[in-house]
Design a protein around this nucleic acid. Structure first.
Lengths: 337, 337
DNA sequence: ACTTGGCACTCGGGAACACAGAGTGCTAGA
DNA sequence: TCTAGCACTCTGTGTTCCCGAGTGCCAAGT
């Protein structure tokens, strides 16, 4: 059904269409890629490919354009991820190495990825739930207010101001801090609730209201940040491209954390570092766009996801190469810090 | 030269053009606004206004369109800021009141402003330099690493990981923390450098290298964040509007912190809470767009700026009302926390 | 059984053209 | 000083026409 030459034709169509953004005809195809066959033969193959739904023509007597199914086949079987050039790799490395804190790492990563791919880059902040507590700090602000600061092993810092139910002097605060730390230090964020469950009972009665207040804020912080923060960059790259779905819709999706989250998708449980590619209508939330994403994180734990979003007509090999490389480098950086 | 009726005509032209986005002709003008005069008279006035450069026609025999100069006159003399409706005020208040920390305040503010004005909203994070130190925290991470956390009275938290030149046990860290706090608590960020200048000399010799390292990071943090973080929202609102300068340029400017900073401009020293309006070419960095901005901050201190960016053809009274109102509310919130 | 050249057909998009309508400037009169 | 009328000038739209790229199919060639 699909012999080698038909696949070669499909590959050529995808490559040409991606680079020219114009429907590609049989003649130009036979010329540019030296297929050693005549345009007529190519036409026959094209008819077969169209029959099978891999390509389509915008209107009668125009060239062919890949369908989503065609891109899918191209990505799965006809292309291989294109590695970055040495210069690019070095640029990534030095650029990311300059980051001073987690915020900075994420910001730099997203910009880098946008610039590298000339698409919209999307990066999810490392999930709290998979990281562990490195330190809990209680800072007295006034008689009845303290600030809770939670520091994780990924360098993330969360803070909340807490109104206490009663006046608490600093020494008691210091004591509570010590208790909290001995209880939570190094424990995974997801196990924090069980760790602190019986904490009030182990403390003197008079401390319990205060502890209860603090704990409720602490737990709230964990839950709240469970659905994670996501940032994007490179929206300017949308200006040139034309989407089947309106530009407005894309921009709106980018500003909706929830939608973005869905777009990035779940890490595949078996191979978390695998590249996920969603093409056009495969993507349920934003038609006419494609997404290349992957998980990243320090060591073997995948902490979050990053990727790029662009028109269906994108250079998949290059984009996939860039996403994979950036994910690796940022994982390194996170592991080191 | 410019009698009352001519001004009324200009006002009518601006209002009509803003609402219809089409060049406005003499006939429609005389009808819609009851000017009590005939179209012919209006035409004479229009000729005069065009002579003076307040309006222009895209081509012969089309209606008139306000020039930047025309908008300027309109904003300065022909319009008054339109206050928000009661429902809108309440919505703002409840929406902002739900914020849990500074990040959240800023995020909510920028979204709110974007939604309210249907333009791109821009909010600068409150400046560190004008705020004061509320607490300095040193958190031991490992033998030779500590995390420096700086908490300001605006609720902002800055953190940095510090590599120490030698192994330092926790009690020494605790002591240093106490020293730093007694030295810096409540002092303005801009006066931190002088406050800590003689600190090493006042400490035992063996502590000096460690202190020097910590202080250098601390000072670096202050300088680095001096040029402030800026966020925006509502880019989707650009999709409809058409700019004389390309959409791409606008999006690029939005992602460039530095440009954005310049766009928001400086707070006028005398009346920091005054609204700044830059119209079209008055804006040196991004032609064809207008900016309505103002300072905000707790109490009488202006901490930062916020505003919106939109096409020159925008509804200035409404936009100005929204910007002013949001600035007031967010100032209140900051003062309270 | 494929491949190739030839040929008629289709359809999109650009150029040429006409035309209606909105808007103007000007002049003469109230 | 305002108004009414009138001739003029454009843009935008709809129509028509034609070119050319590209196709599908058929018959001949290997």
């Amino acid at each position: 059904m699909l012999d080698d030459r038909k696949l070669a034709v499909l590959r050529a169509i995808v490559e040409d269409y991606v680079s020219t953004n114009e429907p590609v005809g049989s003649k130009a195809l036979a010329e540019r890629h030296n297929l050693k066959v005549s345009p007529a033969t190519v036409r026959n193959d094209m008819a077969a490919l169209e029959e099978d739904g891999y390509i389509t023509q915008p209107h009668t007597s125009a060239g062919r354009v890949p369908t989503d199914k065609g891109y899918r086949l191209f990505v799965d079987r006809l292309s291989q991820v294109k590695p970055l050039s040495g210069a690019e790799r070095r640029a990534i490395e030095t650029f990311l190495a300059g980051a001073v804190d987690l915020d900075d790492v994420v910001t730099r990563t997203v910009r880098l990825l946008a610039q590298l791919t000339r698409q919209v880059a999307v990066v999810q902040y490392p999930t709290l739930t998979r990281s562990t507590v490195r330190h809990v700090e209680l800072v007295p602000l006034s008689e009845r207010r303290v600030m809770l600061v939670l520091i994780t092993n990924t360098g993330r810092v969360e803070q909340r101001v807490i109104e206490l139910p009663e006046v608490v002097e600093d020494t008691r605060i210091a004591h509570l801090r010590a208790v909290l730390n001995s209880c939570l230090d190094g424990c995974g964020l997801s196990s924090v609730p069980e760790q602190v469950a019986d904490l009030p009972e182990r403390l003197p009665v008079e401390d319990r209201p205060v502890v209860a207040t603090i704990l409720s804020v602490l737990l709230e912080t964990l839950v709240e940040r469970h659905d994670e923060k996501i940032v994007f960059a490179g929206a300017a790259n949308l200006a040139g491209a034309d989407f089947t779905t309106g530009l407005r819709d894309v921009l709106e999706a980018l500003e909706e954390q929830v939608v973005l989250m869905r777009l990035l998708g779940e890490t595949s449980p078996d191979i978390p570092s695998a590249l996920t590619v969603r093409i056009g209508s495969e993507n349920p939330y934003l038609h006419g766009t494609s997404i290349v994403a992957t998980g990243y994180g320090s060591g073997d734990k995948q902490l979050a996801r990053l990727g790029v979003l662009g028109p269906t007509r994108m250079d998949y090999p290059v984009t996939m190469g860039a996403v994979r490389a950036v994910a690796r480098y940022v994982s390194q950086i996170l592991a080191a810090s």
